[in-house]
Design a binder for these strands. Structure first.
Lengths: 192, 192
DNA sequence: ACCCGCATGTAAGTCGTTACATGATTCT
DNA sequence: AGAATCATGTAACGACTTACATGCGGGT
């Protein structure tokens, strides 16, 4: 079974979904840390069904094309549950921006500062979005967030990972931009 | 040109290296955030030479097999320099442990806590290793670390990224292990 | 003799991306 | 009539991993 398979099972364990629905969930990101395109999802669903981890039923719709709604089976649920507590294989981290930083000594300081400042901004923006969702969760799901057995708790946990990730990344970008470039100029540069 | 190509150029911009040397550097990790096996490196070196980004010369050794030492060309250096300040394409983050967290509500709390505690420990250990290297760098390279034009500064910057990454990851693991499991039991469990 | 480290390659397979392909239904 | 969204697939290609393959020289 592939990791993508477990990602799909993780979504189906919460609710029945079509391939299209799954694709939408995977765009945003499953719990913010996995993604896949429809071209990968449809064949994987077929394999999961072949293995008995999911089943599907065709749902007819008036206003839209019919769809196949997939549901997780007991076998699938069991496999997913077992996978959760297996230690993950350690895969090497690959981060292109950090790799760029490794050769930043060759670049013009101002130019490099612009790049890292811009990347830092992106991560700050993502952080802000995540924090907004977190506030919403804390309001809406208050009780669930102290029950590790609830799916809402699990969603909150992955979001929490996203927040920590973005915060750290933004911090590093700001630090590096400052170190290589120095002054932060507002576009237009008001100096007379 | 592939990202791996730039990873190799980034190393060769600092010193001439053989395919074998490059492989060793990539195992540890280039500046801690890229990696590759020899089976990927040798063909990539051939492509880089084809494109005029590197050249090689055979160095004969008495005590060991001969080797090809690769050097970066002016063309290669220019390409690398330009790449550094190009904004990186954003690639989706894929983290299996976070994906597991998304389905952690299905698992036994104690079992899950063990997994996340164990992973947290790994990241704390890596953090400790990185921090030791940082201390060493701060002692050994003191002056360079304030000159963004020095390779040592760039190495320090990537290490800094590694430190922030591990710190955040460890923090999250500890938080989640605590939330799903509660008590930290020493193996053997001294309770009477 | 055998294993280990140095040294360099190729081949097969997996995972993921981009592109190709089709068709229903609704909105403008 | 044409574009947008919903819906489901396949094919070609690229990046990376694992395995296959070979050979030198030094230490036990």
């Amino acid at each position: 079974m592939t990791t993508l398979g477990y990602a799909i099972l993780g979504l189906l364990a919460r609710e029945g979904l079509s391939g299209y629905d799954l694709t939408q969930r995977m765009k945003g990101r499953v719990g913010y840390f996995w993604s896949a395109r429809h071209s990968q999802i449809y064949p994987e669903l077929a394999r999961l069904e072949d293995g008995g981890f999911v089943t599907h039923s065709v749902v007819e719709q008036r206003d839209r094309p019919d769809k196949k709604v997939y549901e997780i089976t007991d076998v699938g649920l069991e496999a997913l549950k077992d996978w959760v507590t297996e230690p993950p294989p350690e895969k090497p981290t690959r981060d292109e921006l950090t790799l760029k930083a490794y050769s930043v000594w060759l670049a013009d300081g101002e130019e490099a500062a612009r790049v890292f400042r811009a990347e830092g901004l992106k991560h700050e923006e993502q952080l802000a979005r995540y924090e907004e969702i977190r506030s919403w969760m804390e309001d809406e799901w208050r009780e669930d967030l102290s029950s590790p057995g609830s799916p809402h708790f699990a969603s909150y946990a992955t979001l929490q990972r996203g927040i920590i990730h973005e915060r750290g990344y933004a911090e590093w970008c700001r630090w590096l931009a400052e170190a290589v470039g120095g002054e932060i100029s507002i576009s237009g540069r008001g100096e007379a």
